[in-house]
């Protein structure tokens, strides 16, 4: 029984880390502010979420640690999504337009990310 729990938690942890990695790479590689904010929020929600679930399995038994981890998961999902929304909204309000498929209309490409 121990071994099974360990394997499942390990699977979750590895996938969580993989998502964090993709988020980080996305953060660096994406050309535009809004796509980068999208990549960053992936690490926040999916990456952290999976790691937390993996940890739940590690916590062993229904003691005090399990509910705490569940609460952390809920809060982090709630908070991080709102945060990225707020940042994106603030950027939009301060006049930063998202870069719309610059491939076909090269002319109006000047509005792309400056930040």
């Amino acid at each position: 029984m121990e071994l099974v729990l360990d394997i499942i938690s390990w699977i979750f942890l590895v996938t969580g880390c993989f998502f964090c990695l993709t988020g980080a790479v996305g953060l660096l590689r994406f050309p535009d502010f809004f796509s980068r904010i999208h990549a960053a929020s992936i690490t926040d929600t999916l990456g952290a979420g999976l790691i937390l679930i993996g940890l739940m399995f590690q916590s062993g038994g229904w003691g005090l640690v399990m509910p705490k981890l569940v609460l952390i998961l809920l809060f982090s999902l709630l908070a991080s999504t709102t945060a990225s929304h707020a940042i994106a909204k603030a950027a939009l309000k301060s006049g930063l337009k998202p870069e719309v498929s610059s491939a076909d209309e090269p002319s109006e490409g000047e509005s792309s990310s400056k930040l």
Partner: peptide, 18 residues
């Protein structure tokens, strides 16, 4: 400026008591 931040205000209403 804080008027139309609907989403923020609702989430905040939930978060602050916690």
């Amino acid at each position: 400026d804080m008027q139309q931040q609907i989403i923020l205000r609702i989430v905040a209403k939930m978060m602050i008591p916690l």
